[in-house]
C-alpha cells in the first residue's frame, strides 16, 4: 500500500528577466569581471600602443604626408585592436564552461548578444581614447579642431565593427583555428566601415576634396544598423544548445 505522498514542492517559478534588464545584467557582469581582471582591456591597450609605434616607424614623414596617413593609422588601429577584443568576447565564459549556461538560461539570446556588442564597443572606445591622441602626437597631427567629429566617426565605426564582429566571433568558437579565421572572415566584411572611416577622417582633417563629412557618417551608421539588426534577428537561430 502506498500512502499518498505529499505533493512535491513546486520548483520556484523562474521568470526570465525582461529584455532591457537582461542586457543590463550581462553588461554589468562583464564590466565587473573586466574591471577585476583587466585582461582584455590591458592586452588591447598594449596592442594599440605597439601599433602606434609600428605606424610611427613605418610612416612618419613630412607634416603633409603625416596628415594623409593619420586616418589610415587610426582606423587600422581600431580594426586590429577591435579584432583582439571581439575574439575574446566569450572567452571567459568558454574558459569557465559557463557559455552553455548563459545560452541555456531563459534570457533572450539576442539580449545577450546586444550586451556583448555594447561591451566590445566600450572596449574599443576606451582603447581609441588612448591610442588616437598618442598617434596624433607621434605623427604630429593637430586634431583639436575636429576632435568631436573624429570621435563620432570612430564611435560609429566601432559600433559597426562590433555589430559584425561579435556574432561572428561567437560562431567562430566552434571552429578550429578560430583566432586565425576570425580576422580573415571579418576584415573583408568591414571594409565598408574602413573606407567610410578613412574617407570621413580625411574629410575632417581637410586632406580630401570633399568637405561634407556627413554622408560617410550616415553610411557608417546605416551599416551598423543593418548588421546590428540582422545579427540580433538571426542570433536566436545561430546558437542552439
Amino acid at each position: 500500500m502506498t500512502e499518498a505522498r505529499p505533493p512535491a514542492p513546486r520548483p520556484p517559478r523562474t521568470r526570465a528577466p525582461g529584455y532591457t534588464r537582461t542586457v543590463l545584467i550581462v553588461l554589468a557582469k562583464d564590466a565587473r569581471t573586466e574591471l577585476r581582471s583587466k585582461q582584455t582591456l590591458a592586452t588591447m591597450l598594449l596592442f594599440g600602443l605597439v601599433l602606434t609605434f609600428v605606424y610611427a616607424f613605418g610612416f612618419v614623414s613630412d607634416p603633409a604626408t603625416n596628415k594623409k596617413v593619420m586616418p589610415g593609422a587610426m582606423w587600422g588601429a581600431l580594426l586590429f585592436a577591435g579584432t583582439l577584443g571581439v575574439g575574446r568576447t566569450f572567452a571567459r565564459e568558454a574558459e569557465d564552461g559557463a557559455f552553455g549556461a548563459l545560452v541555456l538560461s531563459p534570457a533572450e539570446r539576442s539580449a545577450i548578444l546586444l550586451a556583448k556588442i555594447a561591451v566590445n564597443v566600450a572596449l574599443s572606445a576606451l582603447v581609441m581614447v588612448v591610442v588616437v591622441p598618442l598617434l596624433a602626437v607621434m605623427l604630429r597631427v593637430d586634431l583639436t579642431d575636429c576632435a568631436g567629429l573624429i570621435a563620432l566617426q570612430l564611435l560609429l565605426g566601432a559600433i559597426g565593427f562590433a555589430a559584425v564582429g561579435t556574432p561572428l566571433a561567437v560562431m567562430a568558437v566552434s571552429a578550429r583555428f578560430a583566432e586565425v579565421l576570425l580576422p580573415i572572415v571579418v576584415f573583408p566584411m568591414v571594409t565598408p566601415v574602413l573606407i567610410a572611416g578613412v574617407k570621413g577622417a580625411s574629410v575632417a582633417l581637410g586632406t580630401a576634396i570633399e568637405t561634407d563629412p556627413w554622408p560617410w557618417l550616415q553610411f557608417t551608421a546605416a551599416y551598423g544598423l543593418v548588421f546590428g539588426a540582422g545579427g540580433l534577428f538571426l542570433f536566436e537561430r545561430m546558437v542552439t544548445e
Binding site: 561572428l168 560562431m171 573583408p188 553610411f219
Partner: peptide, 24 residues
C-alpha cells in the same frame, strides 16, 4: 555543426555586406 552554422552565418552576412561594399 558549429562550423557549419558559422559558415552559414558568414554567407548570410556576406549578402548585405556586398551591398555596402558596392556603395562604399
Amino acid at each position: 555543426q558549429g562550423v557549419r552554422r558559422f559558415a552559414a552565418v558568414l554567407a548570410v552576412f556576406a549578402g548585405p555586406s556586398i551591398y555596402f561594399v558596392r556603395v562604399a
